[in-house]
Nucleic acid binder design. Sequence first.
DNA 1: CCTGGTTAAATTTTT
DNA 2: TTTAACCAGG
Length: 990
Amino acid sequence: MARAYLLPEQPSTTLPPVDLETVRPLLRGLDREQRRAVTHGDGPLLILAGPGTGKTEVVTRRIAWLIATRRARPSEILALTFTERAAAEMQARVDMLVPYGRADAAIHTFHAFGDRILREHAAEAGLPAEPRVLSRPEGELILREELFRLGLRRYLPLGDPERNLRPIADWIARAKDAGLVPSEIGARVAALRASAAGRPDAEALVDDAEGLEELARAWERYEAVLRERGLLDFGDQVLRARLLLRDRPGVAARVADRFRHVLVDEGQDASAIQLDLVRAIARHGNLTVVGDDDQAIYGFRGAAEGGIARLATAFPGMRRIVLRRSYRSRRPILVAAHRLIRANGPERLAARAGVDRPLVAVRRGRRPAPVTVQGWPTDAAEADGVADAIARRVAEGAPARDHAVLVRTNGDGDRFVRALAARGLATWGSDGGRLGATPEVRELVSLLRLALDPSDDLLLYGVATAAPWRLGGSDLSRLLAEGRRDRRGLRAAMDAALAGSGLALAPGSHAAVSRLVRELDRALEEIHRRPAGDVLYGWLRGSGRYAELVAAAEKGDDRPLRRVARLFEILRSVTEVVPDARAAVLLPRLQELLAVEAEEAEDADPQPDAVAVLTVHKAKGLEFPVVYLPGLADGRFPARRRAASLPAPAGPMAEDEADPLAEERRLCYVALTRARDALVLSWATASGGSGSRVRRPSPFLAEATDRPVRLPAAAGIDALRSAIEAVVTPTAMDAPEAIADDGRPLSASRVEDQLACPLRYHLRHRLGVASPEHHALVVGQALHEAAAAWHRATLAGEEPADGLLRETLDAHWRSAGFLSREHEDARYAAALATLDRFRADESTAAASGSGRRVVAVEEPFAETVAGLPVRGRFDRIDEGPDGIVIVDYKSGEVRDPRKAAERARGSFQLHLYALAWEARTGELPAWLELRFLDGGVVGRVRPEPARLEKARSALREAAAGIAAGGREPAPDPFACGHCPYREICPASAA
DNA sequence: CCTGGTTAAATTTTT
DNA sequence: TTTAACCAGG
């Protein structure tokens, strides 16, 4: 029997005799399909390998078999994977199968292989001998450096110039995945323009075309910088290797001759350019592709839709072997998974191969557990329920590592980690700490920022409270208060205390402040002339922090020291890309550079006694005896799709598949098929916050189980309770007699800060920690002052002087908080244009005789509203035909009048001002207005009772919270992203 | 059935 | 800040 397998399936050149004993073990234990796959001779082969069908086993044995049967020398075999991890695993398994250590087959990631080709032919590829490859954040650092030279307009909002940095980097990567070069975007733009004529969506198409032109320009500039500096990015490693083979037929021929057999793992994840590269190398036809289109979950990352099918077309006569036996999951799991994936339609390869049936379960014996579905009233209840179930099983003796909780997004995992931790169970795999988020690294990054802007109290506060000084308590609070009181800042208060002319400090604090100031001054002196790493090194030695870290390491905890060492390694290597490594250059992208896992490998590998809490993407390729898949609620899984922020470089991308749910469904399929023995699906009716929306079960639940999904009756009471609590909690109308903490009156910004995040209120208003300079504030204030000066002049009956607006702008313009000189120049020019329009608008209004006149400017008030002291300043008060209009100037980039009106309606500040006006005059104003200076639009609203009442209750709620003295952070991914305190906030969700 | 206003929730990841 | 889903009201 075995002898038959030694014969080539297709006649080929005469092979030398093969020792049966070396070949037989390679086929041992394989099923029929697997054997056929392993022993396929020459010619193209597609192995359709569903989950758990022994895919890796087949590929590795096939490599060993090709070698053992002398169909290929090891060096003639090329195997391509996507991750280093997969490559390493394949290599290890081939090494075990091929004796004598002669397995020098080329097993690489696509990128490593492309890189190897490029280096071997560096001269022909027009590259330096040793091109440096950019990491992702390093690429963004280069874009950031060039930001104002990229020729961007639409994608460069002056109020937040870095907003599109990441999207543009992604866009370039996707363009390279598609195999494009910048000049080819032009063709696409032309095609879009041509096709637009006469179509109903013509406007949108032309708009996209313009956007693409802008992006192509930016891309070209980015490429020019890479060329100048001899750099490659990840996309180039594949793209330029492919272009090399296309432009140099001689090189292509040599590469194809060298690799007589090519194997591709996870073919469904390949990008268009990767597939193209494979076609070019495997033109001899000896190509083995392993994959499963039902597990294609990387469309967002550039995987080509229908990639495997396209390869099959490119290699006519490709033999197809379908692995149908699952060695992993019990039958109920396979049945549910198949029911689900079936909904993706008849184009799936399994369906086209005529095997649209569940995989055959090989593991038998003991009746398998059915797939269960649980409904929970809230997210919290779901997390507790899952954690309880796991804890119970562990108590009964099951190993913790046998359990996995699979989630759709990283954020979803947190509550399971916490719930498990509360039951004494360790977890692994959830988005572990990033290096940049560890305290050791944050301290050092803060120091760099502080050295660049020593007047930033916020940073100084952060550094002073961090190791090794660990200042805190009343001394630091008093220094802060003192610095704020005399308006000279925290540093001045420290200096005064040290000189004996200021606050008296406790001896310990005195010594710490003294050394802190000394070390800080040294860092200040060095920061602009030495690389960031050198400054940090001096600080570590001088402050004693280095000795502390070493001592901790000697005592057994070397993680802090290792993290700091990695920071230094990153700072060193970035100098290869950006020659000027001073802090001012690196800081803007430092967070991204440090967004690597804090602990090498530790979090990415299964931990011996911990429960896995993983995103489904991270779980791909893994298996667990027991899998929990919570969060199967509509909108969460399938996740709600967000509109792309940039037009796709290569036309419709994977997400534009006919069925928008298809990729999410495949993701769910991957999740279900991670389970060996037991699978528990669940969902929660509500996220749990008061007033949170009721969620419907995911459509995938019904698809997978073929049963109607109902909430268990037991959940009813909890649901009612949470519904009642939802009504009771937020209203808080009967708040206790509210007082505003130290008796200082409330203001709009105090109330808004308190409601947004009590910790932010605490830092800004109780401790008086100043926020760092921000360009939006500088520009906004200067414009504000200019408008006020104009109105003051007219109020005094004068014709405003010609240069008044510009002179006032200049007088209040400070060069602080801008990203770069170019940014400041652009914002200044924009501010001048804004003032021109302001003048024109005001002149028109004056001439129109609208019956409105300005009666007060910058008018301060202090009134009692809802029993609470409130103060503020009306920017401008007008008297119009219907009565008083309260005006507030804003400098945000609002251009749409509808948006402006919406903002006015929702403005707490305006409604508070209306109430203050009522308290002062006994009458409500007729109108409330926001005037957006940049956009020249006005949003107006009548002060309506319902909205005024809302403002009153917000005021009360804030006052109560302030009086209670709470300082709990209220992390929110969006709010934290813009919070000035995010650098020092331990709870920041940014 | 449409419109507008209100409200909660903010992807996935490797090289 | 933006978006989309939901609800009320015409």
